[in-house]
Each structure stands twice: as C-alpha cells, then as structure tokens.
Design a protein around this nucleic acid. Structure first.
Length: 683
RNA sequence: GGCGAGGUAGCUCAGCUGGUUAGAGCGACGGACUCAUAAUCCGUAGGUCGUGGGUUCGAGUCCCACUCUCGCUACCA
C-alpha cells in the first residue's frame, strides 16, 4: 500500500546562516524522506524560512535595507546551502508569503470565533526614540539583584537572577541607549488551557517519543499558560485582521509556514492541499524538530491546528543538539562551523554518512568527533563499500568488455541474504535508527569483501580461469549494487554515480530483489575521494574568529591597503552587500601614542548613539595625536572587534593611501563636510 | 536550585525483560595478499562495565547513596 506522507523540518530563522547544527536535522529528515521515496511511497518534504520578528526588523534597519530584501537574500543563501548538502526539499518556501498570511488569518479568526482569544493589558518597556516596544533582549541595564552592569532585560548573566525588564536599574534601549518608558498596550492571548484535554489525549496517542511525552507531563503539571500572540507595531510580520498596528507574533505564523509551503507546492503541481491538512486527511504528517522548540510544536501548534480547523500531526520527532569533539559548538575553538565553510573544504556526503552513523530515534545529543569522522568515513565508505566496485570493475572491463554474467552465478546464498537483510535495514530506517541501519549495511560490506578475498579474482586472472573470474566479479558488483541501494538515502550523489556505473534506471529499494545479469557497465572512475585530514584543520581555521587566527600585528586594524602590484578595482558587489558595512561619522575625543607600538595611535571615538569606541589605527606616521583631537572622521562601526596586544580595537577608521605604500606618511584620514554629527550613518 | 540524559576497551558506540569466559566498528600491534583510492583478509593486545553499598544462587543489566559530565530550566516560550 502506498502511503501519503508529508514531512517537515523546522524552519530556519532568516537572521542567521545555516550551520552544522541545523544540518543534523535536515540531513536526518532528508534521509528519512529519501528512504520513503525509495520505498515507492508518496512522500513530500516541505520547509521554509522563518522570516518575521523584531530581530529581522532591526537587522534590516541596521543594514539600511527593507526587511523583505534581507529575507530574500537569506532565502537564497539558505537554499544554496541546503541544495549543496543534497537536501531534497520538494518545496522550500518562506513565511513571508501570501499563503502564510492567508492561513495565519484563517487560524486566528477561527480561534477568535471559537472564543479562544482573550485580550489582556500588558505593561512593557517602550522606547520613545525608536518608537517601539522593546523585547527583553533589546533592553539592557543594571541587575536589580547583584548590580552587574549591562545585563539583558530578562535575566542576569552574572548572578543568573531573573526579573522583569521593568525592574532593571538604569535600563536603556539596546538600539539607541535612551531610557525606555513603561507603556501599556492590549495584547491578544491564545487560551492554551482550553485545549488541555485534547493535548493530553494527543500526547498519549503515540505521537511523541516517550521521553518527550514525560516532558509534557511536567508542563501539564505546572499548568498551561495562555500565550501572547500579538505584538505592537512597528513589527515585521502580518497585521492582525480587524486591528490596527497589531501584528502576529513571529512564533504564531512560523509553524504555519509548513502549510504555506505545502499550499505553494500544491498550487504549482495541482495536488490537493486539503488531503494533507484538513480534518479527515488520511495522509501522515511528521515534523522533525530540535528539543529546543518542543513547547511550540507539541503544545501551541497542535492546539492551534485543532482550534483553527485543521488536522493535527501524526508525530513530532525530536532530536538532540550537535556537539563537536564532545563540546558545545564554539566560535573560538573553530567548531561553530557554517554549512558554507564546511562545503568550501569537504564533501557533504562525508557529513551525511557520519551523522547517519550517529543518529538514533532517541532525543540524544550527537557528537561530531572529527578524528572519528575521518576514520569512519574513510574506512566504511571508501575502504569497504566503494572499494568493492573499485577492485572488481576493472576485471569486468578488461576481460569481459564490461558485461556481467548472463546468468547469475552460484554465490553460496550471498545475494539472497543481502536482499533478506534489506528488511531489517528498512525497519531501522523507518524507525529512524539510522545508526543501526549503517551498522547492518557495513556488516554486509565486510561479507562482500571477504567473498572477494576468498575467491581471489587476481589469482583467477593469472591462472586464466576466465569463467570463474567473470562469476566472482559479477557477484561482487551485484553485492555492491545492493549495498548502494541501501545507502542511497544517505549518499544520493554516490548512488547517482553508482546508477551511472551500472547503467541502472534507478536504485529503488525493491529494484535489487533480482540481480543484474548480462548488464554492460560503464568504465570505472573514482566514486569518492578519501577525507583529507588537512582539510578538517583548514575548515576549523576558517571558522575561527579572525583575531585568534593571526599573531598580533600592530598595524592590523589600520587602513593599510593590501599592496598588490596590479592595481585593479575589486569584484563588483550589490548594494545590499555594501549596506552590510555600517559606516558612521565619529568624533575623535582622545588620541594617544601607544606604548610599544610604533605605527599605532589609540583613538577614543564618540560615535553618537552608538556610544564611545576605542580604535587602534595605524596612522601614527602621518598624524600627531593632538592634531586629531576634536576632528570628525569615518568609522566602520560593525567591524568585528579585534583583540590586540594593546587592547581591544572596536572598529576601524578610514584613510586613503598610495597603493605602493612607499611613503609611509602619505596617509589621509577621511572627514565629512562641516555639519555632520557623530553617529550619523554614511550611505 | 529544579528536571532530564549519561558515565562500558585509545576513539565512537551495542549490550532486550538480571544468567555461559562483556561485544562491534575504528585505531594500535603482528602477519597475509596485491585486484583495488597504502584499500582488503587473518590474528593479537587492551576493559575490576564512574565509586561504594545492597537485593539475588547469580548484576554492566534491579535498589540506595555518592561522584563526575552534558543538556534543559529557574514563572519563559
């Protein structure tokens, strides 16, 4: 029976790049989807970017572009990253879409009509200067408990006290540094508690792993709280129908993106949306998520769907976090690795295989041990599996014009046992026990290699026993084909190369029930290169922040151009790329010589609303410190801070210089025309 | 502080409802082979299963205490 299956992985937030942590989930999901497709089921994989909310709005504002533009750019980036990891979405959409607005409104209006929306007055910090309510993260101030300065609005990193932003002492807006005022506003609350009975039933229906069901019991025990689903403008999101200047909170419309992505796909392909999402749907709906967003997907989301007039998910599959070399991903250790950085150095299938080797159905953290990674991938994929083809295809090519035996030879029941093992392996895939599936497949690969060893085709070739040689190599390649059929969900690229090598139409699961007889194969070419451990180090190095990468160089942040002999313009960039550079007018408050540095001056800059910055600039040869005090110049305000021997440099001032830099004193600091004020944006 | 997960060979992990000398893969070491991307095959070494108690004829496997690690959480979704 063909199953109709809809699968999602969590929507990545459009504020950041895809990293190896995201990929645990997308690779897990993708393997599961590819497996089901190979089984002949009607399985579709939908995802999207999560695009709304204050962080996106602020970032777009900082970059000086419309949020729509930012979101579109990130969409392209995310899509390219996933594509290059062979993530086979049927559709990758966006929550900033007409479809998503439609469903958000539909669900909201149904909830409203059902009496599940309450209005409450909320008191919140408001910034007059930025004309907006401030989320906790955008308020900073002094901790009311321990007095630590510069703490976030909700909790103190120093003494880990929690409090309301309104309790913060000397609070200020993280954007403009002005003191916020308290304002009240009406917010809309989703009455989650109305759905408690329904949710408890749903939890017990087998939709969740047992450990997650236990977690929910905790939440039920402490009582379900109503959920604030509205935000006051300005806010990047969808306006709430029938209200003015009120928007849906980003987490309201984020999971609805699963439906929007489905509809967008259905509209293009003529498939019925309702058969997936409306009540009475016979389809299976699965969400893969990380344990950090359990609450949204197992309480709010099913309740929203229920009250909004839709069906609820069949299951939510939760996975743990990624650690690298046993520790949390860390920027300074270079283990916070972006998808693109990985791709710049390594083959995505290495990671897909390694993750598959470590993934189980349980909610456990997955450790990417980089030494183990190298050994595992090289030993299993290259040494065992690919090697099967590599050591026998040559004989078939040389001695038999590339043709396999017309009649499948006697192999002692090996082929039959490989086909038989497929049932157990399929079971493991189905249950998301990928580690067990990989172990089972590699045990078969060991058997196949032993078969070759015992029959020593190289001896048969020497002895001129062509019949036996033909048989042994035909068996080996047939076994290889079965293994690659089983590995295809994990290694789609290698599977594709195998399909080409063996002249196959597909590598569907059932297609290897019968061995290949009389097939002509393509000349063998390398299927996969070994992992080069040096590339790992290069990747870690590229992931480390700049200041940890290089030895301290006094002139580092100074405007010294790279003296290239061939002077030519740099590569063309787009406006939005330029807009990423936050240039500001700054007034030099102090300028001092730096002890022990003969090229540097230490500048103290007033950057208006951005506060005071310390910048080390390599301009001592051209300027006396006292000549600089009081003058205006231009600073790159969002350049990553750089730790130097002499202190932290928090930006970079701009100056012109000759390309050949022969005359060290030929440095010319930029200045705005009269009338400019510190903090002004330059664009 | 609360909750959860976990501590099994150098590394990554299996060990179901307690039962023969505790397993696999990788790595190390020794050998074989040479078809193959220094791959493969055979063999060896190596663990008092975090610590201490207890239940039992018998515990890595159950109970208690302790300890270490990791994650989540602390009125927040």
């Amino acid at each position: 029976m063909i199953r109709r299956i809809l699968v999602t992985s969590a929507l990545p937030y459009a504020n950041g790049s895809i990293h190896l942590g995201h990929l645990v989930e997308t690779i897990q999901t993708d393997i599961w989807v590819r497996f089901h497709k190979a089984q002949g089921h009607e399985c579709r994989y939908f995802c999207a970017d999560d695009t709304h909310g204050t962080p996106i709005m602020i970032r777009a504002r900082n970059e000086g572009i419309a949020p729509e533009l930012l979101v579109a750019r990130m969409h392209e980036e995310h899509l390219a990253d996933f594509r290059d990891f062979h993530i086979g979405f049927d559709n990758y959409y966006t929550t900033h879409s007409a479809e998503n607005r439609h469903f958000a409104e539909e669900i909201y209006l149904n909830l409203l009509q059902g009496g599940h929306i309450a209005v409450e007055t909320v008191h919140q910090a408001y910034c007059d200067h930025d004309a907006m309510f401030l989320p906790d993260r955008f308020i900073r101030g002094t901790c009311p408990k321990c007095g630590a300065a510069d703490q976030y609005g909700d909790s103190c990193e120093h003494c880990s006290a929690t409090y309301s932003p309104l309790d913060l002492k000397d609070s200020y807006c993280a954007l403009c540094r002005e003191h916020p005022v308290t304002r009240s506003s009406e917010h809309f609350f989703f009455q989650l508690s109305h759905f408690e009975t329904f949710l408890k039933d749903w939890t017990r229906s087998g939709a969740l792993q047992s450990e997650m069901a236990n977690k929910l019991e905790e939440w039920y025990a402490s009582g379900l709280k109503n959920w604030d689903i509205s935000r006051d403008g300005p806010y990047f999101g969808f306006e709430i129908p029938g209200q003015s200047n009120k928007y849906f909170y980003v987490w309201l419309d984020a999971p609805i993106g699963y439906m929007a992505s489905t509809l967008h796909y259905c509209n293009q392909t003529g498939i019925s949306f309702d058969e997936y999402w409306r009540p009475g749907s016979q389809a299976e709906v699965y969400h893969f998520i990380g344990k950090d967003i359990l609450y949204f997907h197992t309480l709010f989301w099913p309740a929203m769907l229920k009250g909004g007039g839709f069906r609820t998910p069949t299951s939510v599959f939760v996975h743990g976090f990624l650690t690298v070399n046993g520790q949390k991903m860390s920027k300074s250790r270079g283990t916070f690795i972006n998808a693109r950085t990985y791709l710049d150095h390594l083959d995505p299938e290495y990671l897909r295989y390694y993750y598959a080797c470590k993934l189980t159905a349980r909610v456990e953290d997955l450790d990417l041990n980089l030494d183990d990674f190298v050994h595992r991938v090289n030993a299993d994929i290259v040494g065992k599996v690919v090697n099967l083809a590599s050591r026998t295809a040559g004989f078939i090519q040389k001695s038999f014009a590339g043709q396999l035996c017309e009649v499948y030879p006697e192999d002692g029941g090996l082929y039959a046992s490989f086909v038989q093992a497929g049932n157990e392996i399929a079971q493991h895939y189905e249950e998301r026990e990928f580690a067990k599936a990989m172990r089972a497949i590699m045990a078969l690969a060991d058997q196949a290699n032993r078969f070759i060893e015992e029959n020593a085709p190289w001896n048969l070739a020497k002895q001129g026993d062509l019949t036996k040689l033909h048989q042994v190599c035909s068996v080996a390649l047939n076994l290889f084909r079965v293994l690659m059929t089983y590995l295809a969900p994990v290694l789609p690229q290698l599977a594709e190369k195998t399909r080409h090598l063996l002249n196959l139409n597909d590598l569907h699961w059932a297609s290897c029930q019968q061995p290949l007889n009389g097939t002509t194969i393509q000349p063998f070419s390398h299927l996969m290169a070994r992992v080069d451990a040096k590339r790992i180090e290069a990747m870690l190095s590229a992931s480390r922040p700049l200041e940890e990468n290089s030895t301290p160089q006094p002139a580092a942040p100074a405007p010294v151009p790279a003296p290239s002999s061939a002077e030519s313009a740099s590569a063309t960039i787009q406006l939005d790329q330029f807009a990423q550079v936050d240039l500001r007018v700054a007034r030099i408050r102090q300028a001092e010589l730096v002890e022990g540095a003969d090229k540097l001056l230490k500048l103290t800059l007033d950057v208006g609303s951005l506060g005071t910055r310390t910048v080390f600039a390599g301009i001592r040869a051209a300027y006396q410190p006292e000549a600089l005090v009081g003058r205006l110049t231009v600073v790159v305000a969002n350049l990553a801070a750089r730790k130097m021997k002499f202190g932290l440099s928090q930006g970079m001032v701009l100056a012109a210089s000759h390309p050949d830099a022969t005359d060290k004193t030929a440095l010319f600091l930029l200045s705005p025309d009269a009338g400019a004020e510190p903090g002004m944006r330059i664009q």
